[in-house]
């Protein structure tokens, strides 16, 4: 009975939203309502998640588990950011500088580490994957794409060479289109499974 109730809610909401793709005008107000409620629920869900994160680290500190000092740093930063945000509001210049001047250096540096990791991966690409069609195509494409990006492969405009170059530059697009269509088919199937309650996001059946 409970499963039927939850399935009915999912199906009803889903059908109204799907109908909106076909009949936009008559369903417009209902869709607006459904969308706004969804936005509120996502926000509340986000707050619950953040609360769980804070509670986890509070427990770590109280029980003095391994890494509790890091948890203390996290919690101090969390509380400082939270209080400053509510007191100063997010529009405040100091608050914006505080958040951005921590986020940008740390996140950019983490991304920079990825560059080193990818460089290591490039060195070991063939060793780990072997000489397979996939690895050969991957490596050749990566090399040519990089050379294209660097502007090192260019032809004069209006020549046959330009057409040939365009042809090769379009080759990644072919596979990308296949990937997009495949992803869309997968999304369609998964969406239908959720709607028909044969599958649930939590893994329950």
């Amino acid at each position: 009975m409970k499963k039927i109730l939850f399935g009915a809610i999912t199906l009803m909401v889903g059908l109204v939203v799907l109908a909106g793709f076909f009949f936009q005008d008559p369903f417009g107000p209902a869709l607006t309502l459904i969308y706004q409620w969804g936005l509120v629920l996502v926000a509340v869900g986000g707050l619950i998640g953040l609360g769980t994160l804070a509670a986890f680290h509070i427990r770590n500190i109280i029980q003095q588990k391994k890494g509790w000092i890091s948890s203390a740093v996290l919690l101090a930063a969390f509380l400082f950011s939270l209080i400053a945000g509510f007191v100063l509001t997010p529009q405040n210049a100091f608050y914006r500088d505080l958040i951005l001047n921590v986020q940008v250096p740390v996140e950019t540096s983490l991304l920079a580490i990825l560059a080193a990791t990818l460089l290591y991966a490039s060195l070991q690409l063939i060793r780990t994957r072997g000489w397979t069609p996939l690895s050969i195509a991957f490596m050749a494409s990566a090399v040519f794409s990089m050379l294209f990006n660097l502007g090192l492969i260019q032809t004069a405009s209006g020549t046959l060479g330009e057409q040939v170059l365009m042809f090769f530059r379009r080759l990644p697009l072919v596979g990308a289109r296949g990937v997009l269509i495949g992803m869309a088919l997968g999304g369609l199937v998964m969406g239908l499974r959720f709607l028909l309650s044969t599958d649930h996001p939590g893994g329950e059946r």
Binding site: L5, F6, G7, I9, T10, L11, M12, V13, G14, L15, V16, V17, L18, G20, F21, I34, Y35, W37, G38, L41, V42, G45, M183, A184, L185, G187, L188, M190, G191, L192, F194, L195, H200, P201, G202
Partner: peptide, 19 residues
């Protein structure tokens, strides 16, 4: 109940967008 609501909304939005 709210999760079922969100599942229906997300699934329908994903289906419509994908198709």
């Amino acid at each position: 109940i709210p999760l079922a609501y969100l599942a229906g909304l997300s699934a329908a939005v994903a289906i419509g967008g994908a198709v």
